[in-house]
Every structure is written in C-alpha cells, then in structure tokens.
Amino acid sequence: MDRLHSMKVFAKVVEQGSFVRAAEIMSLSNAVVTRYIVDLENHLGTRLLNRSTRRLSLTESGQAFLERVRHILPEIEEAEAIVAMETKKPAGTLSLYSHVGFGQGQLGKLLPEYSQAYPDVVLDISLSERTMDLVEEGMDIGFFSSLQKFDASMVVRKIGVAEVVLCASPSYIAKHGAPETPDDLTQHACLNFSHEHLRHYWHVKTDEGIRDIPITSKLVSNSAILLRDFTLAGMGITMRPSFSLGDDLRCGKLQRVLADYQMGQVAVMMAYPSRRLLSAKVRSFVDFIMDKFPQPESDPWL
C-alpha cells in the first residue's frame, strides 16, 4: 500500500464529501478510491469514515487522523517542491575535499569562475593532507591523487596526469648551481615530502632504468604549502607534482632542474559517491571540471 497516496485520497474524499467526486478530481476510478480507503483503515486497524448511500461522516478516529494529515501533507508537498527545484537548478551547499597540493595550486583559480556561473551554490572547501572518506565525512566531491587510497565504490573521473618535477628557486641555483646529472643531487639540499621511501632516496628514470639516488633531506614535511614556501625561499631542491607548482614554474619563481630526466607521474582524479540521481549542484560541478580538463592523459599544469 502506498501510505502517502492513501492519505491524499482520504483527505480528498473528506474534502469533497464523496468518493465519486474525489475519484473524478484525482482521475481515479471509484473502485480504486474505495480500495485506498479500505487499505488505509486496515493498516490503521480502525474505521475512518462512516458510509451510507447518501452521506459520509468522519469517525472520532477519522477526525483525529484528518487533523494530522492536514498538517503532514503540506509539509511533504513543500519538501518535494524544494527537492525538485534543487534537482533542476544548482543551489545549496556543495562540499568539496582536496588534498592540499591540488587544492592550493588549482582550485583557487577554478572555483571563482564556477561561483560566478552558479551564484546560488555555496562552496564549502576542505583541504587536507589526509585522505577523507567522502561518505563518512558527508562530502559531495573529492579530488585525489593516485598516491592516495580511497573507497573503490566511488565514481572516479581522471582529470589529468601530472609530471613529478624537480625544481628550485633562481636564488638557490645562483648560489649553489643546478645539478647536471642525477648523481649531482647528492651534493644538494633536498626538501622532501614526508614519505618514508623518499626520505633518503629519490627515484630517477635514466637510460640504465630506474635508479635510487641518495639524497640529503634538509627539510621534511607533510605540508605541500611549507615545501613550496621553503623552495621559494631558496632553501633547496624539491620534488613535487606539477599541479602544485605549475604557476611558479611558468612565471619563473621556480626553475626546473634535471628536466631531461623522468621522476614519475601522478594522476589526479575527481570522485563522488554515486552517478545515480545526482543533484543539480553536483552535476553542474562535475560537468564544469570535465570541461576544464578535456584531455586527462596529458599534463595541463606544465
């Protein structure tokens, strides 16, 4: 039994004082209207209407039930209208997660344009070095790197592949020179992300294959922001994905070193919990991002 529809039929029968008129207004047969009322009474375990050939009257239970129904139905109709509006027009709060490197390097440039296009959407943005569970944290969309682990049940869209690059500030290069071969890195101060397997060695692809180059870490941090700041300050050479430092490289604040050698790649993915019944705000944002990154196999940040 559709309990909600049964309540609507009951209210309409009482309003019209007739099964026949209620059936006509709701485009139902008399038999169907009668069935709804009978099923509702059976469900509630009480008679709601006294029926005769000439008139209908509410029982005491029917009167009490009608008073509740008259409050409930408008609330439900209003809720349905609000949801229907949200599915058509992007509105409400859109919660986004990103790891710091991508968020700091890219979202600041992208989100103002989205906000201008969809002014009724409020952006709630969380940048974190830790991987968030989108469902558990109640997030709509997340940006992850291929170095992170996340729920395999997510809908995942690859938006780009970033080159891992070595770079330093012009002031550092002027003072210490630029390494000419991977082995020269052993003589330089290195600024390192706090992955244990990177703390003492950097992996470089050479003609001889992948080599582990011993390094001296002058600074180790789990913060992409600090690593960028210290690199800009001339403290050493850092190894970061291009999406976190692309603007600094383009404007000359940082310079690539050992650009002829490959350090690896990091894919960037956009993920969200479900592809079914997406709200307008989520759908509009997914479409916006995919339009900005039409070639996911390329590096759009260099």
Rank of each mutant, 00 (worst) to 15 (best):
D2I: 03
R3W: 05
K8T: 04
K8N: 06
F10S: 09
A11F: 05
K12F: 04
V13T: 09
E15T: 11
E15F: 10
Q16V: 07
Q16W: 07
G17N: 13
R21G: 03
A22L: 01
A22D: 00
S29W: 05
V32P: 10
R35A: 05
V38T: 09
H43Y: 11
R47N: 07
L49Q: 08
R51D: 12
R54S: 14
R55L: 02
L58Y: 13
T59P: 02
R70W: 05
L73Q: 07
P74Y: 02
E77T: 15
E80C: 14
E80T: 12
A81E: 14
V83R: 09
A84Q: 14
E86F: 00
K88I: 10
A91D: 11
T93W: 12
S95G: 13
S95V: 06
L96M: 00
L96N: 04
L96Y: 01
V100E: 11
G105A: 01
Q106A: 10
L107I: 07
G108C: 10
G108P: 12
G108Y: 01
K109D: 11
L111M: 12
A117Y: 01
Y118N: 13
Y118D: 03
V121Q: 08
L123R: 09
L123A: 08
E129F: 09
M132P: 03
M132L: 13
E136S: 12
E136L: 10
E137M: 12
G138P: 10
I141Y: 03
F143V: 08
S145P: 07
S145R: 03
K149F: 01
D151R: 08
S153Q: 07
R157T: 05
A162G: 13
A162N: 15
E163P: 09
V165F: 04
C167I: 01
A168I: 13
S169H: 07
P170K: 14
K175R: 14
E180Y: 04
D183F: 12
H188F: 11
N192W: 10
N192V: 15
F193D: 02
E196H: 04
H200A: 11
T206G: 11
D212C: 00
L219G: 00
N222T: 15
L226R: 11
D229S: 15
G234W: 03
G234S: 03
G236L: 10
I237A: 06
M239I: 14
P241C: 13
F243C: 08
L245G: 05
L254M: 13
R256S: 14
L258V: 11
D260W: 01
Y261P: 05
M263G: 15
A267P: 04
M270G: 08
Y272P: 05
S279V: 05
M290C: 15
K292Q: 13
Q295K: 12
S298F: 00
P300C: 12
P300S: 12
L302E: 11
